[in-house]
């Protein structure tokens, strides 16, 4: 009884700032409430959802978000694993190195994105300057302006920024491996690849799945990066679901459609989360 009382204030705060707005979004997504159509509003059932899913721009933003998440997380986890393996060695200045690689992750995304926008700038940016000076290319590359390049450029920034975060989580998994396992394997004549495949990987697999779960959730909601780097351009090729929802809610004041988009995004995230959790559970049982 006392425990419930003590939890009450925190619970009330959560209810107030989290649950109520969420329920309100759900309610608004079932109405035709929009400030771009003044007047009273009615409940319209699932009409907003049906309408949203038929809009080409929204479909494209879903596709963009999946590409950004899948490709980005794939590179991030690979690079993160390599970084973690390197940092796990008994290097000199290991503490300093570990702190250093966290820099990109620790800086605010919006600031990173502004810096990257200038570096990508086709006329004034450092990338094209170096490429032209070294003679590697003859033409300026329009990193953020060409439809077939912009998404790749954006994913590159995301990989640069968050691989170290992945490395950090995977590193904690690496540190739980007892050294005597490796010693025994070496005595038995196991090759480095066999040691990685049979000892290291099974031990860090849960950490890898966990880091992928956290990262996928984040990437799926990506907003600051596309908002600051490309504003969803060129021609909507880097517009994510979050950016589309933001436009509907805050720029066009279409609370009905914007809320439906937010709820759809939430459902997609839920499915993604369940998939990861099922994978984690299966592994635990297998061990």
């Amino acid at each position: 009884m006392e425990a419930i009382l003590l939890v009450m204030p925190a619970l009330a705060a959560v209810m107030l700032v989290l649950l109520l707005p969420t329920l309100n979004s759900l309610r608004m997504s079932l109405t035709n409430f929009s400030l771009s159509r003044p007047g009273p509003f009615d409940f319209v059932g699932l009409q907003n959802y049906r309408a949203a899913l038929r809009i080409g721009e929204f479909q494209r933003s879903i596709r963009n978000t999946f590409v950004f998440t899948a490709v980005g997380v794939m590179f991030q986890v690979s690079l993160g694993l390599v970084l973690a393996l390197l940092l796990n060695r008994a290097l000199k200045l290991r503490g300093l190195l570990r702190a250093t690689i966290l820099f990109p992750w620790a800086l605010p995304t919006a600031l990173n994105a502004i810096v990257w926008r200038w570096m990508y700038n086709a006329d004034l940016g450092v990338f094209n300057f170096l490429l032209l000076q070294s003679g590697l290319v003859q033409q300026r590359i329009n990193w953020l302006g060409a439809s077939n390049l912009a998404m790749g450029s954006m994913i590159f920034v995301a990989v640069w920024k968050t691989s170290s975060f992945m490395a950090l989580i995977i590193l904690t998994g690496l540190q739980t491996i007892p050294d005597d396992l490796y010693e025994a394997a070496i005595i038995d004549g196991a090759s480095p690849w066999q040691r990685f495949r049979r000892i290291t990987f099974p031990f860090v697999a849960p950490a890898i799945v966990l880091s992928m779960l956290l990262r996928s959730m984040d990437a799926f909601r990506a907003f600051e990066l596309p908002f600051t780097l490309t504003e969803g351009g060129p021609a909507g090729t880097t517009q994510t679901i979050s950016l589309y929802g933001y436009r509907q809610l805050f720029q066009f004041l279409n609370f009905d459609r914007g809320s439906a988009v937010a709820v759809l995004q939430f459902l997609m995230l839920l499915v993604l989360g369940i998939v990861y959790i099922v994978i984690l559970r299966k592994r635990e049982k297998a061990l």
Partner: peptide, 16 residues
């Protein structure tokens, strides 16, 4: 106009 104009906001054009 160069292709880069497709990413340009006022400050970028001004800088160039």
């Amino acid at each position: 106009a160069p292709e880069s104009i497709l990413t340009y906001r006022p400050n970028d054009a001004m800088a160039l």
